[in-house]
Design a protein around this nucleic acid. Structure first.
Length: 225
DNA sequence: ATTTGATCATTT
DNA sequence: AAATGATCAAAT
């Protein structure tokens, strides 16, 4: 089977136009266009839907530490939602740099991705085969000043804990919209870090995630059923 | 080894 | 039921 991947969109309008043509399609339809089969379970294909959408839209960052549409500075995220339009899962953003290499929120990996995002809702109903999941109307989104403020505050709080070596206080419970969670192949994976007493300790690599509290707001305020 | 794409599974 | 912590696969 030949895999069809368009060139990256050259403008926001082109990306938006492409994205809108996907609305209403099922994963089966989209996969067929790419000569792919939809897996019956995501147990061993957790990122499959995200990759399908990247291919369909011409994302070109691959696994680089950059927004998916590099030249447009736009990050693509699929967002599973239920019948009520509520997000089912939190959203991974990027790895947390340990030790910190981001000078400030405005120049952080988190902000580079969150400044401009294309959310593609995936209507994911229980007991429905994955191939029948339907693509929703995409949402081109940027944080408003209030959200920006909260994200920045979360980032600064979380980065301060890490920079000061307070890994024992760092958990998914911190942060209003952003949180830090383990991000590794498994819980035995570790990196060496300096704790707040200056000692080398081991910890599991971390990633930044967005809580459903924020994605729920984005859906409520922007989603067209 | 690391970053991407996330969802799974256990705990609360 | 929702949130946290654990895990899986591909690309480089």
């Amino acid at each position: 089977m030949i895999k069809i991947k368009p060139l990256p969109p050259t403008s926001i309008e082109e990306l938006q136009q492409r994205a809108f043509t996907l609305a209403g399609k099922t994963l089966y339809q989209l996969a067929l266009e790419q000569g792919l089969c939809v897996p019956t379970t995501l147990h061993h294909a957790k990122g499959w839907i995200g990759q399908l959408l990247e291919n369909a839209l011409g994302a070109n960052a691959n696994n680089l530490d950059q927004p998916d549409f590099t030249s447009l500075g736009i990050e693509l995220k699929t967002l599973p939602i239920n019948a009520q339009g509520q997000p089912i899962e939190s959203t991974y953003i990027c790895t947390a740099p340990i030790p910190n290499r981001d000078p400030c929120f405005e120049q952080s990996r988190v902000w580079r991705k969150m400044a401009h995002m294309l959310w593609v809702p995936i209507l994911s109903l229980a007991r429905q085969p994955i191939k029948h999941r339907q693509i929703g109307t995409p949402i081109l989104w940027s944080p408003d000043p209030l959200i920006f403020h909260d994200l920045k505050q979360d980032w600064e709080e979380l980065m301060e804990l890490m920079s000061l070596g307070h890994f024992e206080d760092l958990s998914a419970h911190k942060g209003k919209y952003l949180q830090i969670r383990p991000k590794a192949a498994n819980s035995k994976t570790f990196v060496r870090v300096l704790n707040h007493e200056g000692q080398m300790i081991s910890t599991v690599p971390k990633g930044f995630y967005v809580r459903t509290l924020l994605t729920q707001r984005i859906i409520q305020e922007n989603y067209i059923t």
